[in-house]
Amino acid sequence: MEVCESSKVSLREFGCEQNLLSRPDGSASFVQGDTSVMAGVYGPAEVKVSKEIYDRATLEVLIQPKVGLPTVRERSQEQCIRETCEASLLLSLHPRSSLTLVLQVLHDDGSLLSCFLNAACMALMDAGLPMSCLFCGVTCAINTDGQIITDPTAAQEKESRALMTFAIDCAKRRVLMSSTKGSFSVHELQQCIAVSQKASEKIFQFYRDSVRRRYSKNL
């Protein structure tokens, strides 16, 4: 477990552990403050004929909430995560095969979608799947005073007037995915994107440190 301290853009304490499950081909748990998600990747494996795509792998994302069955909200998050992963994975290297990414919520204390994205990226990395770039998720909340809070807790999310989650790629820090709630001006959007890009650098540095530490132990 590693921790990441923050100076300008404030993020909660991050933690990540890879390769903690024995059955999946890649697994990771990601902790942002009290929000915690476990991810497992299976594949490349055989694909159902009905889901087969002739020139690339079929990616399936499943979100398991802490209690109950997945609802419409989870479906829409699944779609966001799947399309983000599809953009960064080199799926054409595994035609006619299936990849399954399972995300299990362990605890939700805000910024859940960004935690999903971070856990997904770490698990894909652990599975050793070829990717064109890494990505990370950043959630920003604009509170009633117009202040931007990165990586908000559930309480901060509830008080906020707008909430945005972005997925940012590591190559050019561009926005891969965006999902918003609440209304905001164009200027506020640009500010949030800029803040998220700054925050993404920290997260990528955390990725690097955590992977480096893991491999230095193994060798």
Binding site: T84, E86, K172, V175, M177, S178, K181
Partner: peptide
């Protein structure tokens, strides 16, 4: 809403 479910940046 600014909804971009993924894809290229």
């Amino acid at each position: 809403s600014l909804h971009k479910p993924g894809g290229t940046p």
